[in-house]
Each structure stands twice: as C-alpha cells, then as structure tokens.
Design a protein around this nucleic acid. Structure first.
Length: 361
DNA sequence: CACCCGTGGAG
DNA sequence: TCTCCAAGGGT
C-alpha cells in the first residue's frame, strides 16, 4: 500500500467523525459524541471495565454483565475490596476467566495508586491491559492521541487499503497503518468511530458498503472483494476430549470444589469429574472417582462443550444420597445457589443435565 | 512466535 | 451440524 498524503488522511478522519456524530451506537459505558465535543469524558473505571469485558466478546453479551458489575461495584475501590469469589460469580458465563482474576488484581493496583494512570505506559503496567486496551483507555477515557488496533480496525484498514498480509502474524503492519491516523483532534471519538464502523457497516461478512462514509475511497469496495479481507492464516483443527462428571446431591447440596487459580477455568467451581483425555471412558467411572458403584447412579444426557482449542464430550452421572461422607477438598452448594455461583457454563450445563435426570428441573 | 484461554450468536 | 468469530492478553 502506498502512503496516503496528510490531506487525504485528514479528509478520511473528518468523514468518519461526521458519520460517527450521526450514527454512534448508544452504549452503557460510552459518552455520546456531542457531549464528548463539549468536553465530557467517560469514567475511566467504566471504560476499563468495558474494554476488559469486550476482549474477544460481543457487545450484546457484555451489556448485562457490565450493568451487573457496576451495580455491585460502583467504583474501582469497591471492586478492589471485593472477594475474588464474588467477582468470579458475577463473571461466570463470560469466559476467559483470567480476565476476572486480572481485573481484581488491577483494581487493587489502581486503588493503591489512588486512581487510574493517565498515560499508555502506566496503563500497560496493569495486569490484563495489553497494547490494545492501553491505547483504547488512553484515547477514550483521557482523549490522548492513540489509535487502538482491534479486530474491527484491522478489518476496516485491510479493506480500505487492500492490505495483503495475513493475520495474526501481520499485527505490526496493521499497527503501523493505524498509527497514520494518530491526531490530537477527538482521538477518543475517532477510535470508537473506527470500531463502530467495523461492527455495524464494515462487518466480517456482507458489509453494508452503501452506507459507508469511506466507500468512495475503499480499495476493496472498488474491486468488489471486501469479503476476502482481512487475509488470515489457516487455523488448526481442534481435537476431541472426553470426561465424566458427577452430579452428587446430598441433603446439604451439590458436591463442588474450587479449581486452581490458573489455567483452564482457573478459580472457578466444578463438580467432581474425571481427568479429560483423548479417548472415551467406558465403565466403572464412579469407581475411578472413588464413589460407591452400588448407589443409584443415573446416566444423564451427555454434555458437549466447545473450548477455544478443543471439543469436550462429558458423560454425566447423577445420584441422590441421604448422606455424603467428607470428601477432601469438596464442599456443598445448595441447588438454589447454583445460578449465582462461580460456575462456568460447562458446569452449569452438567448440573442442569444431572438435576433434570433427578427430576429436580 | 506458538500456544493457551470461553462462550453464544450468526449464517 | 458446522464454521466463523467478538473491543486480546499472558506465557
């Protein structure tokens, strides 16, 4: 791609900002563009929280979580003072749970500093804030001249200038391309305008080029090949893994335990389950877990769950016991508390399958 | 750099 | 059913 002239870049900026003034999405963590032009800035805590939640996660999914978080933790100090388990409980279902653990750690660091770092470098020092989020918070919350580069912006730029390099290896090329737009005039609105354009007009499939403020200069539109961009490296196929989970209901509730604070579903609750492996389990599953095979085990609907890098098939066995002997590391969770507990979606599915088989759903 | 890390919706 | 993917970051 040839380097656009400063005048051409300035023209693009004005066209996009005009479009944004008229078509900006209304979002709970956002200050409308006209208020922004009046000098009003969004709360850095709101911007930070929303950016973390939005990492690899859709706006529609995030909205209810964002609202619930802000209601329970109105300030970053409230978040810093909260127990991790409560944060994980509110995060349950959103996925990528390291974000929640890092959020808690970040809140404590920010509270200790007495407030948010107001520069990109300071933001970068906080766990969970990478190059994208640092630039986004700096631009949106503090109106500093940065152009964050997310998936939306990569897609928009790849089409606008027909960038051939394949992602994710080409990230540095896109950063360089985006930095050409860096300018002190309304950097926060410009960043959000790029993301709105990518999310609502310049969509991954079937972009609505007829409504795009840049259609007259977009190379991909000119060639009619917008759907072919951005170029991406082929992904690996996911292996299938197998496990067996046990829904054990006693008089005081379900057997659950806490996973380690690292790795897959780190810090979240789980029901007893056998180690996941690449071949299915056949028989004697309850013996393998240390349970009494003579109990009235019910074979439940199996659960399929797709993780980022593998596909999981879980066999589910359920039993109702009049008493449960003490099991090392496990505690009881009342069925009424399941919906608010720090249980990831996989475990919610497993428990639902078990309770249904026990005629409790 | 390659891999790990969730989930639900859209087409 | 299947594929793609959404405001990425940590290691």
């Amino acid at each position: 791609m040839s380097t656009p002239s400063p005048d051409a870049l300035a023209e693009l900026r004005y066209q996009l900002l005009d479009w944004y003034d008229a078509h900006a999405r209304v979002l709970p963590w956002r200050v409308p563009p006209l208020e922004g032009k009046g000098g009003k800035r969004p709360d850095p805590y709101h911007v930070w929280l929303s950016e973390i939640m939005l990492q690899q996660t859709g706006v529609m999914t995030v909205k209810p979580y964002f609202t619930a978080f802000l209601k329970r933790f109105p300030t970053v100090q409230d978040l810093a003072a909260a127990p991790l388990d409560e944060i994980l409980g509110l995060w349950a279902g959103l996925g990528y749970y390291a974000r929640a653990r890092n959020l808690h750690e970040g809140a404590k660091a920010i509270a200790a500093l007495g407030g948010f770092p107001m520069g990109e470098a300071g933001l970068r020092s906080i766990k969970g804030i990478g190059p994208y989020t640092a630039a986004a918070v700096a631009a949106i919350a503090f109106d500093l001249p940065h152009v964050p580069v997310d998936g939306n912006i990569e897609r928009v730029l790849s089409r606008l200038w027909l960038i051939q390099a394949a992602l994710p290896a080409a990230k540095p090329i896109f950063r360089e391309a985006a930095s050409r737009f860096e300018h002190p005039h309304r950097p926060g609105d410009f960043a959000q305008a790029m993301m709105d354009l990518g999310a609502t007009i310049c969509t991954p499939r079937n972009p609505i080029c007829g409504l795009c403020p840049w259609s007259k200069v977009c190379k991909a539109y000119e060639k009619g090949c917008a759907n072919d961009y951005p170029k991406k490296q082929p992904k690996k196929l996911k292996p299938v893994r197998y496990g067996v989970a046990f829904v054990v209901l006693g008089p005081d509730g379900l057997l659950v335990r806490r996973r380690l604070n690292e790795g897959l579903l780190g810090g979240m609750l789980e029901v007893p389950n056998l180690a996941w492996r690449d071949t299915p389990y056949e028989t004697d599953a309850c013996v393998l877990q240390g349970f009494d095979p003579r109990a009235d085990w019910i074979s439940c609907d199996s659960v399929r769950h797709v993780f980022t890098h593998f596909d999981l098939r879980m066999q589910v066995l359920a039993v109702r016991l009049s008493e449960i002997s003490n099991l090392e590391g496990y505690h009881r969770l009342a069925p009424e508390a399941v919906s608010q507990a720090a249980l990831p979606s996989l475990m919610q599915k497993i428990i639902a399958s078990g309770l249904k088989a026990l005629n409790l759903l």
